[in-house]
């Protein structure tokens, strides 16, 4: 058997058998379908019938649809609330944990627990907590003299519950990213700040926050992109109702495709989601692209 020389090993063609299965999986499940959705978005098409080319008619249709705009508005509001509350809470918890706590491992396990909960499970939990008649939180709210959350009737209350349970489900992710970044800050910086007479707040403002900024941005970016997909929480809690008032973009897409059988409009919605997701990610992808090609040369 011939020995493999080091130069042969470095020939890039030899990497192909290793990367091919992963790339094939992505191509067949994501890339080709996404391209096909672009094509579908220019067709008039329902399930099981031949498509006809209609140009931008599907886009015109959804952009003229008040339900689309409401779904988009709901999505934007929920995403903005969810991501920013998560970052603030995650940051506060990272600082709390980095400051030293007894039973830290056990406490981190507790904080990670919601990561293990399914969207369905979380919906069962939170709708029970906020059940208008018997929910624990409803009793707490009335006890405090506050109105209960009428999530199945009042659209803004429904979206508030969706936001609350999304924050609950995804806070572990945001927390871990920020906590790991906080632990990576060298101790000497805090010691130096202390010697200079900085208060706890000042050392947070001048040391922690600026050094965590890159991690905060990455966490926010990822959460923007993933929160934007929001579907299950809304679907399981309100199904977009009452009267389509709590729909988000993914629910709108689902209804267009699978309830109203308008694959063209659904595809146009889908492609708008793709473009906006990539625009959201553009900053990150651009930086990554530079790094990639710096690595290649």
């Amino acid at each position: 058997m011939a020995a493999f020389s080091i130069s042969a090993m470095q020939e890039p063609r030899r990497a192909l058998p290793y990367v091919a299965p992963a790339l094939a999986l992505l191509a067949f499940v994501i890339l080709i379908p996404a391209a096909y959705v672009l094509w579908l978005s220019f067709q008039q098409s329902t399930f099981g019938r031949a498509a006809t080319f209609v140009g931008f008619a599907n886009y015109a249709k959804i952009l003229a649809d008040p339900y689309f705009w409401r779904a988009l508005g709901n999505t934007v509001v929920v995403v903005l609330i969810v991501v920013h509350v998560e970052v603030v809470l995650g940051l506060a918890m990272a600082v709390l944990f980095a400051g030293g706590l007894p039973f830290r491992k056990l406490l981190i396990a507790a904080v990670l627990a919601p990561y293990a909960v399914s969207e369905v499970g979380a919906v069962v939990m939170w709708r029970t907590l906020f059940d208008p008649d018997t929910g624990f939180m409803t009793r707490v709210l009335t006890g405090l003299g506050l109105p209960p959350l009428e999530w199945s009737v009042v659209p803004s209350h429904g979206l508030a519950l969706v936001a609350l349970l999304s924050i609950w489900l995804h806070l572990p992710f945001t927390f871990i990213i920020l906590y790991a970044a906080r632990l990576a800050i060298p101790k000497d910086l805090y010691e130096a700040a202390e010697i200079d007479g900085a208060s706890a707040w000042q050392s947070f403002r001048r040391v922690t926050l600026p050094l965590l900024m890159p991690a905060i941005l990455v966490a926010m970016l990822f959460r923007y992109i993933f929160a934007y997909r929001l579907f299950s929480e809304v679907w399981l809690l309100t199904q977009g109702g009452p009267a389509r008032s709590t729909e988000v973009v993914a629910v709108y897409l689902y209804l267009e495709a699978f309830r109203y059988n308008d694959f063209g409009a659904a595809s146009a919605t889908g492609w708008l989601m793709v473009v906006t997701s990539l625009l959201l990610a553009a900053f990150y992808l651009r930086r990554l692209y530079r790094e990639m090609f710096a690595r290649a040369d």
Partner: peptide, 22 residues
């Protein structure tokens, strides 16, 4: 390889519901 790993990351960012249509 650099181009394909970049494509991999970009594809991961697409919303799953979109691929259900086709």
């Amino acid at each position: 390889l650099s181009g394909s790993v970049f494509a991999m990351i970009a594809l991961r960012l697409l919303p799953p519901i979109v691929t259900t249509l086709p």
